[in-house]
Nucleic acid binder design. Structure first.
Lengths: 358, 358
DNA sequence: ACGGTCCACTAAACCGGTTTGCTAAACCGC
DNA sequence: GCGGTTTAGCAAACCGGTTTAGTGGACCGT
């Protein structure tokens, strides 16, 4: 991929029009500083010369790139095929487009996220799923770039967008308890890399706490031991359910932390001869678009995914301050239960009986 | 979003180290031009000063942005939520990452694709679903930027990646004909904007021709009149099927040009009380990941989506020339039929009988 | 002692724009 | 006709790097 053919520059236009470079710049950016005739003459010449200001030179001179970055610890290949990320990004894109901003994805470059951050030319960054105490967030903080963290509790006084993960998870568990379920399996999202286990500020930990709070009404207690984790994809869900089954788990209800995984788990359950929801209830998380289109439609916890994206850029543009002037910089969005077709009353006479047999 | 705090520049490092700016530059880019001690001294000072080369300044000086653009006529919000695009982009991202390149999305800015192209700072462009005769492609061609067109026949001698759309479609139709179907509905992808109708070089037209060729064996003929179109999303598919049904169509088989739409159509069919595949067979196109996870799993035409993305960047990097030196610049990738669970023998005694009654 | 090579490094031009004084002419009221 | 204000446009600095041409000194063989 070699260089583009030589294109006309601002100097060419200036020469052709017999004016200074400054005048050409004015003609496009602040035409009111020039007489009307001069402006139109310069513009005409620019058109015939097919002049187009070099965006990079402009960025350097203005020290603005008109671009915001989305920072994720996962690789781009998983981002783009994950419906949750897709919808989140769509939200970001919508708000960015409205503000005339481009978006750039910042994800590990040759395995190094730090390097990727260094190479990114952006005016601000939205981090998603990255704890405020992660080294890369520290790197951004030191660099002085404005940023907003999403899906991870921010440091106090730093802008963040969160949803009520715990509350939503509790609703899900309570729903199943109400249907008579007592044998649960939790399918969780694997932490991005094997850095640490369950960070308490992480999404996975928060949702697990919510599930646990929900089953407490039935006198039950859920811990990491009742959970199997995997990547947040359909394959990941299939695989997680199979592993749990192979390890002897015989739940009547499965609490899944992502819709994609829930769809995969449903598939795996059916492969094993289980009917959904008659034999096993499954409840997802996120309420992505596709959740309405599964068969039966997926019961899940709704969170305003696109809205998160839009709010994140608003917050970024506002410099961390809220629209209603000076209010808190941390925003907690609501979640709610959406009951559709994958949950039903617990099958009778199970739970106590079969749990170890084979 | 104001400017970042002042960061140290190459001049600061040079001053602190008592060397010239050039030396600092060399220390990072061509260390062999300096003595080992000098290099390490400069690097140390750079580290303590938290120096990080400004990527924009570097781009300007090198006249390379290390970025490739993906140009689509659709808005980013539809791109990111469309599984086909997601997988294609994942392919691009994989190959780009390997080459140390970032990717940037170029899509209509405030409604203007031309403006978006002007503002993009990229070294090369991959256009997807945009005819080689479109004005924006002309714009790119004139600008001298290398580019590759995907999903649209390129001009001769211009690099392009295509799949055998027509052949795949034919396979799909033949499969259904072989199962005894005679009453077809085609659900097509709506052209990006209302620019023109069916351009013969477009994906939709090619697939339609393939379907038509496939049913020809049964003495049938398919035209645009047998087709209903909509946006390439699940909702689009649901909507399209409903419209067709409301207009009196009573097909025993539906040929859908996108998996997302096929899933939507399946949903709509069931809402209308139809069983899939007993009452109506449905066949998609693309074989996106989710196609394996529908219930029943979707019969569809496979195309190598990710591979298209990877090949596109390879071709771009090779400057349009193929790896095996000098061969043709146009690549035609294969499609194949994947029979899963949404197609079955045509229901008996239908077709001739019910077609108008109610 | 001398010209020639190498080595390690520097000075300055350059990339292509924006922006900040500044100036010359036009315009103004009186 | 004169000081004061606008207006229209220019020259030059600047953004922060890369890259080219060049320089001074050490080293070398004779």
């Amino acid at each position: 991929m070699e260089q583009a053919a030589r294109r006309s520059t601002i100097a060419d236009v200036a020469r052709a029009a017999g004016v200074s470079k400054a005048a050409v710049s004015f003609a496009f950016n602040t035409p009111e500083r020039l007489s009307a005739e001069t402006v139109s003459r310069i513009r005409e010449i620019a058109t015939t010369l097919e002049y187009r200001p070099d965006p990079v030179a402009r960025m350097l001179a203005q020290r603005r790139t008109w671009t915001i970055g989305i920072l994720t610890p996962q690789g781009l290949d998983v981002i783009f095929t994950n419906p949750y990320f897709g919808e989140f990004t769509a939200g970001v894109a919508t708000a960015a487009e409205a503000a005339g901003l481009a978006i750039q994805f910042i994800s590990p470059l040759h395995g190094s996220l730090t390097r990727a951050v260094d190479r990114a030319s952006v005016d601000g960054i939205i981090t998603v799923g990255l704890g405020a105490d992660h080294p890369e967030v520290g790197q951004i903080r030191r660099s002085g770039l404005p940023f907003v963290v999403v899906d991870s509790t921010g440091l106090p006084d730093e802008p963040a967008i969160e949803v009520d993960d715990e509350g939503g998870a509790r609703l899900a568990a309570e729903h199943l308890v109400g249907l008579g379920h007592r044998d649960f399996l939790v399918i969780g999202i694997e932490p991005p890399s094997a850095t640490s286990g369950l960070e308490p500020a992480g999404v996975t930990a928060r949702r697990l706490r919510g599930y646990d709070a929900g089953v407490a009404a039935a006198g039950l207690h859920l811990t990491e031991d009742d959970m199997v984790v995997g990547p947040a994809s359909m394959e990941g869900g299939t695989d997680a359910f199979r592993r749990a089954w192979a390890a002897g788990a015989r739940p009547t209800a499965v609490l899944v932390m992502s819709d994609a995984m829930a769809i995969g788990a449903m598939h795996a359950a059916r492969d094993l001869g289980l009917r959904v929801p008659e034999d096993v209830s499954i409840i997802g998380y996120d309420d992505v678009d596709v959740a309405q289109f599964t068969d039966p439609p997926l019961t899940t916890v709704h969170q305003p995914i696109r809205q998160k994206g839009e709010e994140a850029v608003r917050l970024l543009l506002a410099g961390g301050r809220h629209r209603d002037e000076g209010s808190l910089e941390q925003q907690l969005l609501e979640t709610r239960l959406v009951v559709r077709g994958t949950t039903a009353r617990a099958p009778r006479g199970r739970g106590e009986v079969v749990d170890d047999g084979r």
